[in-house]
Nucleic acid binder design. Structure first.
Lengths: 222, 222
DNA sequence: AGAAAAAATGACCTGCCAGTCATTATATCA
DNA sequence: TGATATAATGACTGGCAGGTCATTTTTTCT
């Protein structure tokens, strides 16, 4: 009765300070979860460890994410997707020139390799069985556009060796995937540089006129 | 006192009939386990389901295998390795001619695709994180010999386009691995024929003089 | 046949961990 | 400052599945 405030606002949600704190906490949780999932995979990831490393109690996790699955989904959505493979994907459905394609693909691969995203990509890849809807998200957001761009490239001018891409657009990304797995499992062997192997495959498929280019661009990237 | 039998044979192990029964039971368990692991992966495989499908009690499993891990190892050892990639591996360390290599590799891939082994290979691939020693077994028994053979090929006569194999012998098997993953996760998309994609990659790396050959050999294989 | 050994059984045990919730701490606002 | 709402906590629980073992069934051997 004493309230002269508008009655419809029964629960005043948040002040600015609070919003920031919650955002920060959410970010901390996601960061800790990214680490935990990357290191241990989904099944062996411990929510207690995520909570500890995020500096919160276990129960707090459930104020931000409904379940372990949703937390994983959150990590994928906010870590893997945002930067995406912009280089290759881009918004414009125009097809790139062969050289432009080569450059943007290598840039994407370099980005993937140097960010923590490759770890999560690998988890999606290896434990995707349990999360069909996650795989679908990833496919729609990343794989499809990449393959579409490859397909566009395959239907451009040079029909010489490009027709193999029309049958198997996956050929261009296969070495990257295999390289990710190699680096994960073949500990004790020298790791594969994803940019180098992607570059080698590009040379095989598109021609190797840029073999020296590649070396240059590598130096620049590192 | 009444025993005039040699005292050292306290436990007479087995008769022929018994050996056969035990062998059959062991085989039934392995078969059911292969199915269960293939369908559900390691983490989600249920030993109770294995027992049920093998027609034995759960406790019986432990008379044949010490643990779930050992059972999985048994499946890998006796299902994945035995037939191996004989074609490519072979015992002789002689390098094959380009054409012989192409043929034996395609035969191996066809064999992998048509047997249940690809399912288990995929499980090793995707859940290998938890079983470094299993990965090691697989690497030593299959991957190493294959890569060695590829390396031998790479150091044979034709140095033209083969030097890329010297840097990345993995390039030849990358499409097969990627194809396995694609067929597992990209349900709803047309599956990739592993022989076809391997053939395409072989054509890229070794030259496509056998493009028509490939089509023929495919028909024969199917 | 029947005693003794080996094999098989499945009810039970146990450790683990995602998820809960009564309690406590912190923020909001009059 | 005190009343109320919102956020955070962490001890606890429920269920699940890998693994055990006292009991029963089958085989072996005289």
């Amino acid at each position: 009765m004493t309230k002269h405030q508008p009655p419809e606002s029964v629960s005043r949600p948040e002040s600015d300070r609070m919003r920031h704190k919650k955002q920060a906490k959410r970010a901390a949780i996601l960061e800790a979860a990214l680490r935990e999932f990357t290191d241990n995979g989904f099944a062996d990831a411990r929510l207690s460890a995520v909570a500890r490393n995020a500096g919160v109690a276990k129960g707090t996790l459930y104020l931000y994410f409904d379940s372990k699955e949703k937390l994983f989904e959150g990590v994928v959505r906010e870590t893997l997707l945002p930067s995406g493979e912009e280089g290759i994907i881009s918004d414009n459905p125009h097809h790139l020139s062969t050289e432009a394609f080569r450059r943007s693909m290598l840039a994407s691969v370099a980005d993937l390799q140097n960010s923590g995203r490759s770890g999560i990509a690998l988890v999606v890849l290896t434990e995707g069985r349990q999360f069909p809807q996650l795989v679908e998200i990833y496919v729609n957001a990343v794989l499809e556009p990449v393959l579409a761009q490859i397909d566009r490239l395959a239907h451009s001018d040079d029909t010489a060796r490009l027709d193999v891409l029309r049958r198997f657009p996956q050929l261009l990304i296969a070495p990257v995937i295999a390289g990710l797995l190699w680096n994960r499992f073949m500990t004790g062997y020298p790791p594969i540089d994803l940019v180098d192997i992607a570059s080698a495959q590009l040379a095989l498929v598109l021609g190797d006129e840029a073999a020296s280019n590649t070396a240059e661009s590598n130096e620049i990237m590192d």
